[in-house]
Amino acid sequence: MRARRTDPGRRERLVETVLDLIARDGTAGATYRAVAEAADVPMGSMTYHFPTRDDMLFAAFSHLADTQHARFDRMMAELPAGEDPREAVVRIIVTHGTDYGRDLVLSAELYALAARDPRYRALTQDWMERSRASLARHFPSELAPMVDALIEGLVLHGQLGTEPFDEDRVRTAVYRLVGDLR
């Protein structure tokens, strides 16, 4: 009897491989064959874990949303006692605005899918709602969606623009939007 090969982390490895290929080649480059080859798994493993290519892409983008939100939530949850949450938002924007490369490309690919497909739009909406809940720990709930949009917009401008990233301009925008928190 032949020993059965086990690879308990295969699905997670495949998801990461899908994201790597999307970051490099766009969603068009994330085919079953390309993923199987890059992950060094048999082609049958792809259909076992992801019955359709769309299931594969959705799993990868769901993982991206979960991972990015967990990082964001941790940053908002771990504010030191007494720290102004506006400064945490500035720090998040500045950090993402200057070092977001791969995740920006992946997010842009997700946004393009969400613009065309309601299933991905629901995924991005869920991600936004979770981000807003993280922000609502420190800001009024009616302000959380605006802070979330400001973060997203300033990060995109920081990554896609050619001007040097201006932390003072970010701080001014955050403080003007949020106002006094007392």
Rank of each mutant, 00 (worst) to 15 (best):
T124A: 07
F72P: 03
H138E: 07
A81T: 09
L110P: 02
S134P: 03
E78P: 00
R137T: 13
E152V: 09
E142K: 13
L154T: 07
E163N: 10
D117M: 10
E83M: 11
A108Q: 12
L113F: 13
Y111R: 14
R86P: 09
T95W: 00
P140T: 11
L143D: 11
S107R: 14
T124I: 12
I93P: 02
A108H: 10
L79E: 07
D73H: 08
P145T: 10
G161S: 08
F139H: 07
A77G: 06
M76R: 05
Q159P: 05
A88R: 13
L113R: 15
T172R: 15
V105S: 05
V90M: 02
T98N: 02
L143G: 13
V89P: 01
L135Y: 02
F165H: 09
G153R: 11
D99N: 11
A70C: 00
A122W: 15
M146S: 15
A114G: 08
L160W: 00
E129F: 09
I151W: 01
R116E: 15
Y120R: 06
M75S: 07
A144N: 04
E142N: 15
W127I: 03
L113I: 10
A133Y: 05
Y111Q: 13
Q159F: 01
I93A: 01
D117N: 15
E129R: 15
P85C: 06
V170C: 01
A70W: 00
T95A: 09
Y111C: 08
I92V: 08
V89M: 03
E109F: 09
E83Y: 09
A108C: 07
L110D: 04
L156H: 03
